[in-house]
Simulated assay, not measured.
Amino acid sequence: MTQQPTSHAPGSRRPGGRTARTRTAVLEATLAELVENGYADTRVDRIATRANIAATTIYRRWGSLENIVVDLADELAVTIGLGESASLEDDLRTVARAVVTLNEDPAHRAWLQAMVSAATRSPSARTALSSVLAHRRDICSVAVRDAIARGEVPAGTDPHEVIRATVAPLYLRMYINGEPVGPADADRAATAATLAARAGLYVLPPGSATGPATPEAPTPEA
């Protein structure tokens, strides 16, 4: 179906043995710190103390708190199957439902609530959150690229804008308004984004650059 990415952010590899236990301990400690203290007050030294791991080990592997947060997001993501459907709407429905499923996971919900709250006050938190969301859009945009190849949507359609249109209403309701969402809300968002894409609303002006390209199609996550 799809291939795994060949490049990894710091700390994002999935090694085994002692290294895997170190990664698990650090990510669990980071999540606990984010939930208890928020991003702005989370410190690598406190993560190290909680995980019973030297701070120098954490810095050597991840380099920064931002990189730990990005790695944590990958750990909390879910793998979804895209690229096998003959319909953009079916693929976008899969993406939207995965977002709803993630919201039902207490760990992911706590992480994202902490990051959204911190991003309104901290530029570094905003950068980390933007990096995570851009990565997720990039790997989900294979659905739009396939739709372009099939002629289902116009050439020049911006894949990132289609994915944004699909998930933004859900994130707004879940993490800003605090409203409940379910599969029906996910399906409605997917249908609306599909109709807009087919109508050409997300076609880039000539000469415009689209979102980050994916050299090899990775396994999509949400």
Rank of each mutant, 00 (worst) to 15 (best):
T194N: 02
P159V: 06
L201D: 12
L195H: 10
P206T: 13
L195R: 13
A209Q: 12
G207Q: 06
V167T: 12
A186T: 02
G200E: 07
D185N: 10
P205Q: 08
A197P: 03
L204S: 14
V203K: 04
P205K: 07
A209K: 11
I176Y: 09
D187M: 07
T166D: 03
L204D: 11
E179S: 13
T166R: 03
I176G: 00
G200F: 03
S208K: 13
E161S: 14
N177S: 12
G182A: 15
T210G: 15
A196C: 06
E179T: 09
A190F: 10
T191R: 15
Y171R: 05
A209S: 12
R198W: 01
D185H: 14
T166K: 00
P183F: 11
A192V: 14
P180C: 08
L172C: 12
L172H: 15
P183L: 09
S208T: 15
A199M: 06
I176Q: 08
A192H: 12
A184Q: 13
I163S: 01
R164Q: 14
G207A: 08
P169I: 04
P183M: 09
D187P: 02
A168P: 00
A168G: 00
R164H: 15
G200D: 05
G200Y: 01
D185K: 06
V181T: 11
Y171N: 05
Y171W: 10
D185C: 05
T166C: 04
E161A: 15
